[in-house]
């Protein structure tokens, strides 16, 4: 992916500081998705495959409106449908545009061992750099949203770029441009968050959705894709959106802290062995030539 004018803020598998970090000011960007006005038209899906020059996918039929079970390595944006029966027996259509959330604390980047395979820009976009990817799929297990997808032919992992190529040139993402209802919007994180709060308040106060709220999960430091949901208490209803997305502790506590310490402790065996030889000496086959041991 071309980095254009984007400034890198975090690099996967990278020792030392990030070169050039913090030398430019960049606004944090954000994609706003109002699921309450989504009509499930899939224009965003089409725009995504067109802009990224990917083939259309064969659909599968599972007795619902769901066209395919999940995003794919070459299908980064998918509407998740759910026919939800409310407590009073009425039906509710729940539709959610599923794609990478561009987490502020990305589990994929934390998990990745390859230098530069995943970068995070100062504007918040998390981007995979396939030329550096080693195909280990740690990111797959690090991501709480099941987003990175492996291509077994190229042995690389792919996902939504938040149109980093377009955003780097000052354009909005392709999906945003295609949305006919205006349920998708793009701007700074602060603006989008404000808009989302206002919309959620409107839903609570005027439309009878008393639990309406904004999905911007703090457990991953917030995301650069946020949702307005009719019912923020049950995000799972929206195609399995996790209520409390978690990066496995094995990628935080173990990988960041314990792993390097444990390695250093293990390598300590080498100087111990060396100085054992220097101070104690070897176990020679006996008897040795006559001589005497001096205590020094």
């Amino acid at each position: 992916m071309p980095t254009g004018t984007l400034q890198v803020k975090a690099i996967s598998g990278h020792s030392g500081t990030v070169p050039g970090a913090g030398v430019q000011r960049a606004e944090e960007i954000c994609k706003y998705i109002d699921v309450t006005t989504c009509i499930g038209c899939k224009a965003c899906e089409v725009a995504c495959v067109e802009w990224n020059d990917m083939p259309f996918q064969q659909t599968t039929f599972d007795n619902t409106y769901q066209t395919m079970p999940s995003t794919a390595w070459n299908y980064w944006n998918l509407i998740k449908f759910n026919e939800h029966q409310r407590e009073d027996g009425t039906l509710q259509w729940l539709m959610r545009k599923d794609q990478c959330m561009h987490c502020e604390d990305p589990g994929c980047l934390r998990a990745c061992p390859a230098d530069g395979a995943i970068v995070q820009y100062t504007n918040g976009i998390v981007d995979f750099q396939q030329e550096n990817c080693i195909g280990c799929q740690y990111c797959v297990s690090g991501c709480p949203f099941d987003i990175p997808k492996f291509n077994s032919t190229t042995k690389k992992v792919y996902k939504c770029t938040l149109c980093s190529d377009r955003v780097g040139q000052g354009l909005e993402p392709a999906c945003i441009k295609a949305c006919p209802t205006g349920c998708l919007k793009f701007g700074t994180k602060a603006d989008m968050r404000g808009l989302a709060e206002a919309r959620a308040r409107q839903l609570r106060e005027h439309s009878g959705f008393v639990h309406a709220g904004v999905y911007d999960p703090p457990s991953v430091g917030g995301t650069h894709v946020i949702y307005v949901l009719h019912d923020i208490t049950k995000p799972e209803l929206y195609g399995g959106l996790p209520a409390n997305p978690q990066i496995p502790v094995t990628y935080t506590a173990w990988k960041r802290v314990a792993k390097p310490i444990a390695l250093l402790l293990s390598l300590f065996a080498a100087p111990v062995a060396f100085f054992h030889y220097i101070s104690q000496g070897p176990k020679e086959p006996q008897p040795q030539p006559p001589g005497q041991e001096v205590p020094r």
């Binding site: 297990s141 094995t250 990628y251 173990w254 444990a262 293990s266 390598l267 065996a269």
Partner: peptide, 29 residues
């Protein structure tokens, strides 16, 4: 990892690391 699920891989690699460290110390000695 896709065949075994996210958690299995994420936890499994810790044991993989621990085994490697045991082997590393043993190897040096």
């Amino acid at each position: 990892p896709r065949a075994f699920g996210r958690t299995t891989a994420a936890i499994g690699y810790v044991f993989h690391d621990l085994a490697a460290l045991v082997m590393l110390v043993g190897f040096i000695v």
